[in-house]
Simulated assay, not measured.
Amino acid sequence: MTPQGKTERIQINLDLSPELYETLNNLAQHINGDNAEVLLKAIALLEVAVEAKQKGKHIWIVDDNQNIETEIIGI
Results as ranks from 00 to 15, higher is better:
residue 5 G to A: 07
residue 4 Q to M: 07
residue 44 A to T: 11
residue 58 H to S: 15
residue 36 A to C: 06
residue 50 V to M: 07
residue 65 N to E: 15
residue 71 E to P: 01
residue 10 I to A: 02
residue 18 P to N: 14
residue 68 I to F: 10
residue 37 E to W: 00
residue 34 D to Y: 02
residue 74 G to V: 11
residue 15 D to I: 02
residue 38 V to M: 03
residue 36 A to N: 13
residue 33 G to N: 12
residue 13 N to V: 03
residue 35 N to T: 09
residue 12 I to R: 01
residue 30 H to I: 06
residue 23 T to G: 01
residue 12 I to T: 04
residue 40 L to M: 09
residue 35 N to F: 00
residue 8 E to G: 10
residue 60 W to I: 13
residue 30 H to F: 09
residue 35 N to Y: 03
residue 33 G to C: 09
residue 26 N to L: 08
residue 4 Q to Y: 05
residue 30 H to S: 14
residue 27 L to Y: 11
residue 6 K to V: 00
residue 12 I to A: 02
residue 71 E to N: 10
residue 23 T to N: 09
residue 31 I to Y: 10
residue 63 D to K: 10
residue 46 L to N: 15
residue 43 I to T: 15
residue 48 V to G: 02
residue 29 Q to I: 06
residue 22 E to Q: 12
residue 63 D to A: 08
residue 37 E to N: 06
residue 60 W to D: 14
residue 58 H to C: 12
residue 7 T to Q: 06
residue 53 K to L: 08
residue 20 L to W: 01
residue 66 Q to A: 08
residue 12 I to M: 05
residue 1 M to V: 10
residue 6 K to P: 00
residue 1 M to Q: 12
residue 2 T to G: 00
residue 70 T to R: 11
residue 25 N to D: 15
residue 68 I to N: 13
residue 29 Q to K: 14
residue 29 Q to H: 06
residue 47 E to V: 05
